[in-house]
Design a protein around this nucleic acid. Structure first.
Length: 908
RNA sequence: AGGCACGUACGUCAAUGGUAGACGGCUUCCCUUACAAGGAAGAGGUUGGGGGUUCGAAUCCCUCCGUGCCUACCA
């Protein structure tokens, strides 16, 4: 472990600014955490520690941080930090994807500025150049992840083009090939004329398009009849090799088998019958172009039709399109075909038509379906592995659950995967060809030479789809095909957190490859995050320029505020709302100032967890109460985080800290804590206060790592003793402190009930003060009457605090009401009443109205409950527990009502 | 075209079939020595419309309206 400067400052009386400055806190801690090795699993010294691991969805090397990353990373970091504090041996493995097309485009664009093309450089020089680009400008995102506070183990950072990962890629390729699951073949594929490469179905973007439907007439041979076909792409008619009709279509039945004269060419083409044809659409007759349309390709296979290629890889017409068209751009050719048909009188009509068009996901060029020689992965066996895993073991478990169906539906209808790409940047396909055209597939050139028995080999120029290496990510990053310790220890990973748009591209493929090569699932759970939309509800995108830059949000509100806001999003789509972050910024400030108060009153105190487990009898109500609340909060947090309910976890933390701890506990303990005299009682109170804060900081840490570390380091008495036992020997840091455990015996429902009585009393008095316009500074006498002795005891025990919180000049607690008539009153639970004498101040009419409103509320509620209870069916069929609950409530309301009635009468 | 979501306060979102909440905003009052990025109190909802199941529906079912997303081989 490197020798490090410990940035622990314990300035008891030093100035603590009134406002939290996130930049200051974000400055040092990350570097220290990273350098001290806190992120690496090796920090855990417990050989029997349970394992928690996540492989990050590798961001593109070309990418920079966007809101989607920030969202996913936050959730992964929350889980990782949480598990680490729970004592798990924790690995969150970072890395990047080489992102074939994007990266190649990026560098190509750079070259263009130098008026060069990649061909000018040649393959080798070009790839060198990409590497150089990667070293110099790639991987911006890794710096940004450090800013996020992501507790990834940088010592294990991977890149999909690293030698070891590339080796895994070749190994998988060779094995799949040898099993016949990878094959090379001529198929119709999605071709991008701009990028000059094939794309898989998943990289195709379908865009709605308003275009035209052209009705073309083809003359029937030996007749003056014509058959009309409808098409959106007239230029492809030059490659037609048939016209198809539905076999059951009576209009055409007698024409099946006859021959058409294909206009503009000298070809004759048959009319075939095929179930695929929808008689309802267009004319019911379809032109068939096997070389330029996927459906027609299939039809061509069924009917043994010739493939006439009329469009080339640059989307220009070929020589086979005829002298009239050869060399023309596809759209130019379309115009000319239409002109010719019109001249020939064979153009029946043109109608407007809405359809969808296939575009390249990256460059938005309209794709051209072309027949070409490519590599494919056969999916039938692989998809069965994935489906079998789900059926037998229920893995991966999808959260939220409905995605499971999306996943299975897709798997069930899976087609073969086109894995070759005509790019230079990527994993070159490990296939070599001899001069004689013989092919060998091998793990290396040496192996290929051996297999081929010659050194005269040429490697296949294509590279693999980027998603091919991504599919291996969960195990290739751990050293596979070597049986490494990491692989044994951290595979399968615990959970995958990702966005829903790559369920098919990535999630399913990892499952298939994991099952195929390791025999186990790559991750147990899959958590699909929601999407952050722009304020108008639109998807954020570069082209729309409506993205919100997380780094700017960090600058404005701090990393912690942004993180906890993102965590609260959970798995639903939300519109971006800066106000939300602002409110969590305020929360951070609240934490800061609560700590500030504790620190300014911390002399004589020291963090001491045992101070929160003293026996009940020794403690005041507010102490028993906050301990109970703390333990309940802790319990709820374990369950929320364990169930990936990030939203609930955040709400729980927020309310515990702000409402319970700040609004009530600090106020209630203030008299003890701020006492001028240095007494044991004061030290004990201070210790307890600072310890509750310390526990709260631990609970908050996974969500807000910076502010919690910053404050934790300043607490009196924090040292490595507070770390989880698995981290003995490490220097003091909150990120290795034990995450609090909930202790059932410290949950005190009685204390919570009593405290609620006090809170209600205080709130009622404040209400009266506010409604009666009593100046905040003015002290007034307060009379509490409670016939129930228990209640009086509760109020008496907290009398001092109550007095202070309601700013009472005196507080009388009696069994019977003795307040003067001219008092404002409010009814409390258990037949108790509180009164504030307002001689001369009270407006009887106003007071009557106020009480009237109160009565109205009670009456409405009572009526509702009464209606329910008087329904015999309810009493009969609802569970007895529910019925009793209702009876209790109605009794309570009845008591309040009569009490209130009394109060109103007393007003006279 | 099919499939899947969603529709709750002014806004953004919560709520195992059992008293509809939070945060922001809004109103009133307060710079009360942790915090005005704060405190106290308050107003605000027939849960998109209609129907059904149930003792009981924001929640389950049907239907209509509206909005998103995904899939698809209709030329």
């Amino acid at each position: 472990m490197p020798n490090l400067q410990i940035i622990v400052s314990i300035p008891l009386k030093m100035d603590i600014p009134k406002q939290y400055d996130p930049k200051q806190a974000e400055q040092h801690h990350y570097t220290r955490w990273e350098q001290a090795g806190f992120f690496a699993p090796e920090i855990n010294r417990n050989p029997d520690a349970p394992i928690f691991s996540i492989a990050i969805p590798p961001p593109n090397v070309t990418g920079s941080l966007h809101m989607g990353h920030a969202l996913q990373h936050t959730m992964m970091d929350v889980l990782t930090r949480y598990k680490r504090m729970c004592g798990y041996r924790t690995l969150w493995l970072p890395g990047m994807d080489h992102a074939g097309i994007s990266t190649q485009l990026m560098v190509t664009r750079e070259l263009k500025k130098e008026r060069l093309s990649r061909y000018d450089l040649g393959r080798e020089k070009f790839v060198e150049r990409v590497w150089r680009w990667k070293e110099e400008s790639g991987g911006q995102i890794t710096k940004q992840m450090r800013r996020e506070g992501a507790s990834v183990d940088w010592s294990r950072e991977k890149f999909t083009m690293d030698e070891d990962l590339s080796r895994a890629v070749r190994e998988v390729f060779v094995r799949l090939y040898e099993e016949g699951l990878i094959y090379r073949g001529n198929r119709i594929v999605n071709w991008c004329p701009n990028d000059q490469t094939v794309l898989s179905d998943l990289e195709v973007q379908k865009d709605p398009q308003s275009g035209k439907l052209y009705y073309l007439q083809y003359p029937l041979k030996g007749s003056d009849k014509r058959v009309t076909v409808a098409t959106t792409r007239p230029e492809t008619m030059l490659g037609d090799t048939a016209v198809a009709v539905n076999p059951n279509d009576e209009r055409y039945q007698n024409l099946v088998g006859s021959t058409l004269l294909l206009p503009l060419t000298d070809r004759e083409i048959p009319i075939v019958a095929d179930e695929f044809v929808d008689p309802e659409f267009g004319t019911g007759a379809v032109k068939v172009t096997p070389a330029h349309d996927p459906n027609d390709y299939d039809m061509g296979q069924r009917h043994n039709l010739a493939q006439v290629v009329v469009i080339d890889a640059h989307a220009k017409m070929t020589a086979d399109a005829g002298a009239d068209f050869a060399g023309l751009d596809r759209y130019k050719a379309r115009e000319r075909v239409i002109e010719r048909f019109e001249d020939l009188g064979l153009l029946e009509k043109i109608v407007d038509y809405e359809f969808s068009i296939s575009k390249c996901e990256r460059c938005k060029t309209v794709l051209e379906p072309l027949i070409s020689l490519q590599w494919f992965v056969r999916m039938d066996q692989l998809k069965d592995l994935a489906l079998g895993l789900l059926a037998k073991e229920g893995k991966p478990r999808f959260i939220p659950e409905p995605y499971e169906k999306v996943y299975t539906n897709w798997l069930e209808n899976l087609r073969d995967w086109t894995i070759s790409r005509q790019l230079w940047w990527g994993h070159q396909i490990p296939a070599w060809y001899t001069a004689g055209g013989e092919m060998v597939v091998a793990r290396s050139l040496e192996e290929a030479r051996q297999k081929a028995g010659t050194d005269d080999l040429t490697q296949d120029p294509d590279v693999l789809d980027t998603w091919f290496s991504s599919a291996l990510w969960p195990f290739s990053t751990l050293g596979w095909p070597e049986q490494t310790r990491d692989l044994e220890t951290f595979y399968p990973t615990s959970v995958l957190i990702t966005a829903r748009d790559i369920i098919f591209l990535w999630v399913s493929r990892m499952v298939m490859m994991g099952m195929k090569f390791i025999g186990r699932e790559p991750f147990a759970d899959t958590y699909i995050t929601g999407t952050i939309l722009d304020p108008q509800g639109q998807r954020m995108s570069k082209t729309k320029m409506n993205g919100v830059d997380p780094l700017e949000v960090f600058d404005k509100f701090g990393v912690d505020a942004t993180r906890i806001m993102l965590a609260s999003v959970g798995s639903t789509d939300v519109r971006w709302n800066e106000k939300q972050v602002e409110s969590y910024r305020n929360f951070a400030n609240k934490i800061w100032n609560a700590a500030r108060f504790c620190l300014l009153n911390s002399e004589g105190a020291t963090v001491d967890p045992t101070s929160l487990s003293a026996t009940k009898a020794q403690l005041a109500l507010h102490d028993r109460w906050i301990i109970s609340r703390l333990n309940k909060t802790t319990r709820d947090l374990h369950s929320a985080i364990g169930g990936y309910d990030f939203h609930d976890a955040v709400q729980t933390l927020y309310h515990f800290f702000w409402d319970d701890f700040c609004d009530w506990y600090i106020e209630l303990t203030k008299s003890d804590v701020t006492s001028e005299e240095q007494t044991t009682q004061r030290d004990v109170a201070r210790t307890r206060l600072v310890t509750v804060l310390e526990q709260a900081l631990r609970l908050l840490h996974p969500f807000m790592p910076y502010i919690t570390e910053e404050l934790w380091q300043r607490l009196p008495g924090v040292d490595s003793k507070l770390l989880h036992s698995a981290y003995s020997g490490a220097s003091a840091t909150i990120m290795l402190a034990a995450y609090p455990e909930s202790r059932e015996e410290l949950i005190d429902d009685r204390a919570e009930w009593e405290m609620q009585l006090v809170i209600d009393l205080v709130t009622r008095v404040r209400n009266i003060r506010s409604e009666m316009n009593i100046k905040p500074g003015e002290r007034v006498p307060v009379f509490v009457s409670a016939p129930d002795e228990q209640l009086r005891q509760v109020f008496n025990a907290s009398a001092d605090q109550i007095k202070r919180l309601v700013r009472a000049s005196e507080l009388r607690i009696e069994s019977e009401a003795s307040a003067p008539k001219a008092s404002a009153r409010a009814v409390l639970a258990g037949g108790a009443e509180v009164a504030v004498p307002l001689e001369g101040l009270i407006d009887f009419e106003q007071e009557r109205q106020r009480l009237g409103r109160e009565q109205e509320k009670l009456r409405a509620e009572e009526a509702k409950l009464h209606a329910q209870l008087s329904n015999p069916n309810f009493v009969d069929r609802a569970p007895a527990e529910k019925v009793n609950e209702l009876r209790t409530r109605i009794a309570d309301i009845a008591q309040r009502t009569s009490q209130l009635q009394q109060t109103v009468e007393n007003l006279q």
